[in-house]
Simulated scan of single mutants.
Amino acid sequence: MQLQWLNDVLVLLEEGNMSRAAARRNITQPAFSRRIRGFEDWLGVTILDRRTNRVEISEALSSNEDEIRALIRRLGELRTKIAQFAPTRTTVEIAAQHAPIFSTFPDMALRARRAFPGLQFRIRAGNLNDCVSMFLRGDTGMLLCYEAERVGPLAFGPDVRRGRWGTDYLIPVIGGALRYTVRDTGDIPADTPAIVYPEDSYFGQVLSRNERAFGTSGFSANPFSVTAFSSGLRELALKGLGVGWLPFSMAHREIESGALISLAHRYGQEPLEVAIYADRRAEMTQTLMTLWAAEGGGQPG
């Protein structure tokens, strides 16, 4: 099997047309067709229906487009690792939600580098579902995420070990000129603009389930912006564009300086755990789990 065949197939899926796909690959259509046949011969399955006037791509191929992309990426990374191998260097790949990348990972990385000076990290950011998929596919050896206490930990098999870095809280904050709308009681006007999370995001699901005001569009009278990126939400809140919910670890400096005001005493807070998951079969991930769980105050599972 040749890597170029996978790239050919991916371009074909993107274009949905043999002529356009061949043009993107800078080869003639007959040559492109021969390469697709080579892939079919290796696969032992026909992926194109050539019996009609137009070529049709089989559903078996199109339904696995994400897996093909992941395989191409992993093969490319493997080639790079072999070509640039250094015996004293170890790289750990981590799938991580955007929020803990900003709020907790820098401290985790510093502690890991003190213990293992040659250690390198590759972070793959995404929403929780994407991160879980990357971890389960084996694209990464570790998963870093927030977990709401009311929801509980993710369910993985016995080959996955769970550790806890620490605890956090999801709190509502307000900044900019909107700070001056906060009343002595801690209330803010019901029509205050809100920077909300999508309801299908992890934080959105947590806030919506508990009917938290200003958390999602369904519980906000005036949603100004919808974003799943907590770091972007923080910047919008600092500019006074709306009230939004943030992990306390991402907002505590701004709260201490007065740039943001916490509304947790009036609108509540959501307890979070910073969870780490690792493949038990990888030695370095297990070593890091033990280090982080011990220093973070949690217990490895």
Results as ranks from 00 to 15, higher is better:
residue 53 N to K: 06
residue 214 F to S: 04
residue 139 D to Q: 14
residue 158 P to V: 05
residue 232 G to L: 06
residue 6 L to M: 15
residue 178 L to C: 08
residue 60 A to P: 00
residue 90 T to S: 11
residue 71 L to R: 05
residue 5 W to P: 13
residue 252 H to W: 10
residue 172 P to S: 01
residue 106 P to Q: 01
residue 209 R to Q: 08
residue 253 R to F: 00
residue 51 R to L: 04
residue 270 E to Q: 11
residue 283 E to C: 07
residue 279 D to T: 02
residue 14 E to N: 13
residue 73 R to P: 00
residue 222 N to Q: 03
residue 205 Q to W: 03
residue 180 Y to T: 12
residue 124 R to H: 14
residue 256 E to I: 00
residue 284 M to L: 12
residue 234 R to E: 10
residue 102 F to R: 09
residue 175 G to I: 01
residue 248 F to T: 04
residue 151 V to S: 12
residue 29 Q to H: 08
residue 110 L to E: 09
residue 87 P to W: 08
residue 30 P to M: 10
residue 81 K to R: 15
residue 129 N to G: 13
residue 43 L to M: 13
residue 36 I to Q: 05
residue 5 W to H: 15
residue 232 G to H: 06
residue 17 N to F: 02
residue 16 G to Q: 07
residue 117 P to G: 14
residue 39 F to L: 15
residue 1 M to T: 06
residue 172 P to I: 00
residue 141 G to W: 02
residue 263 L to R: 08
residue 203 F to Q: 02
residue 187 D to N: 14
residue 212 R to V: 01
residue 299 Q to N: 06
residue 178 L to R: 00
residue 91 T to Y: 05
residue 180 Y to P: 00
residue 102 F to V: 12
residue 107 D to H: 14
residue 81 K to A: 14
residue 132 V to G: 03
residue 39 F to H: 03
residue 127 N to F: 13
residue 58 S to L: 03
residue 300 P to M: 01
residue 263 L to M: 08
residue 43 L to F: 11
residue 13 L to E: 12
residue 142 M to E: 08
residue 93 E to C: 02
residue 198 P to L: 02
residue 193 P to W: 06
residue 257 S to T: 11
residue 93 E to H: 12
residue 50 R to M: 02
residue 204 G to D: 10
residue 130 D to R: 15
residue 194 A to L: 06
residue 210 N to T: 11
residue 139 D to M: 10
residue 113 R to C: 14
residue 285 T to L: 03
residue 113 R to Y: 09
residue 261 I to Q: 12
residue 269 Q to F: 09
residue 170 L to A: 07
residue 143 L to F: 04
residue 156 F to E: 00
residue 186 G to Y: 08
residue 8 D to I: 07
residue 17 N to Q: 10
residue 25 R to S: 10
residue 137 R to N: 11
residue 219 F to E: 04
residue 52 T to D: 01
residue 240 G to S: 04
residue 269 Q to G: 04
residue 18 M to Q: 15
residue 296 G to H: 01
residue 118 G to V: 11
residue 169 Y to H: 13
residue 216 T to W: 06
residue 269 Q to C: 04
residue 147 E to T: 14
residue 245 W to Q: 06
residue 222 N to R: 04
residue 236 L to P: 12
residue 157 G to L: 01
residue 98 H to P: 15
residue 243 V to R: 13
residue 53 N to T: 03
residue 124 R to W: 09
residue 229 F to R: 05
residue 250 M to F: 01
residue 254 E to R: 07
residue 220 S to I: 00
residue 119 L to E: 00
residue 126 G to E: 06
